[in-house]
Design a protein around this nucleic acid. Structure first.
Lengths: 221, 221
DNA sequence: CCCACAGATATTGTTGGACAATAAAGGGTC
DNA sequence: GACCCTTTATTGTCCAACAATATCTGTGGG
């Protein structure tokens, strides 16, 4: 079983490199709560579990460090970050800057991204919104669609890094939404604010949305 | 000369890892125009010139990829990016979002970062502003100070990534400022706008500043 | 002439094994 | 219990190797 690298037969559109694959895998594991905050990712263990060499693990981990999903402690290894109140307001601030710019573009062009509407539909549908993880996914898809609609590669790149941190935060502090219905309602309000095609209105609505999430996260524990 | 790793005796406050050192070195080389746009960084050559192993080079290069200073072409290696008009407006857009948020914080607190004033002083001083590279540095320091004043770790992190791309752009398209005096004048205007402690005023001033730079860059060639 | 196609050559991406340096864990003494 | 020494584990780095892919070269046909 040496050097045998199975290609993703019919699934993957991109035959990505081993480092990219591992980066994605680790990302998934981290965001699914496989590790506790403050836990170290021992590389021998990781290499066994993902059957890669220590070098590839190390490289992938470093990429995740640049995205804020891991922290490197010199001579101690790679650790899952623990978020404090400062991190929460900091993340909210950057998020506001990024998503605010995307909102500005959407208002300018007047095109509401269909994927955002789809995400709201999921929140509205009791059958699909029963699963909590489906809600998290829907929320992620909504905001990702907003960013994508900006048409800016760098905005997207920056947000995708931040997105990881946001999700990790939501994982570490669960129960951020009382009910699926509230979530749907709030996001419908955001859509409406975009339809107004008035930047001030939209910006205020989104601002309130972020700050709501922030206070909810801060109130927890 | 194997495994001998000279520690920075009295200079470095942080005995950084080899990857960090190499990342910084490569960054410097890239930003000093050592490589042409589109040029590939062959790893054997790089390893010789920096006397490191191929792994460390590869890891460092990948970090630079995440910062937009290099691009990885599968099975071709790491290439210096070539910026087109799209990239210029895209960079300007993200920059506006990031720096705009920092400006908002500064206006809120009312504290003008001293480092920004220092940078303007350099532009004003004919002796120091004679050297073109000193001007570039002063401009970088000015805007870096603005970001730092926001007090947000993530804003800083994001901007430092973007900063590299901006500098590289300035390297690839030189002569963006007609004279040092114009530069000083424009930045003094920015300082004044901050002193007004009115977000709309400051935001407009900065917005104009970025857009000026954008059009100057776009007009070139 | 130049296009295509074969082999030779170079370069990348990944792996395994090795080792120094540092941190963490025992273990004994006072 | 606090301190020092030894042992162990883990990290960070290097070297050497190899498969896969890309590039170069030369040769023959149209």
């Amino acid at each position: 079983m040496t050097h045998v690298q199975e290609l993703p037969s019919g699934s993957g559109p991109i035959p990505a490199s081993a480092v990219e694959i591992l980066t994605q895998d680790l990302r998934r594991r981290i965001l699914s709560g496989d590790f506790r905050p403050g836990e170290f990712l021992r590389d021998v263990k990781m290499c066994e579990e993902h059957s890669t060499s220590r070098h590839t693990f190390r490289t992938a981990a470093l990429v995740l460090v640049t995205q804020g999903l891991l922290r490197q402690i010199p001579n101690r290894g790679f650790m899952l970050p623990e978020f404090g109140p400062d991190d929460i307001v900091d993340i909210t601030r950057l998020r506001g800057a990024i998503e605010g710019e995307a909102v500005r573009m959407i208002v300018l062009t007047g095109v509401i991204p269909p994927a955002a509407l789809d995400a709201v539909a999921v929140m509205r549908d009791p059958a699909r919104s029963a699963d909590r993880s489906a809600l998290v996914t829907a929320d992620r898809d909504f905001h990702r669609a907003i960013i994508a609609a900006s048409g800016s590669a760098r905005l997207k790149r920056t947000y995708s890094g931040l997105e990881g941190e946001i999700e990790l935060l939501l994982i570490q502090r669960q129960g951020f939404y009382a009910a699926a219905e509230d979530m749907a309602l709030e996001h419908e309000r955001l859509i409406d604010s975009l339809k107004s095609r008035h930047y001030g209105t939209a910006r205020d609505a989104f601002q309130e949305h972020w700050e709501d999430l922030q206070t909810r996260l801060l109130d927890q524990r």
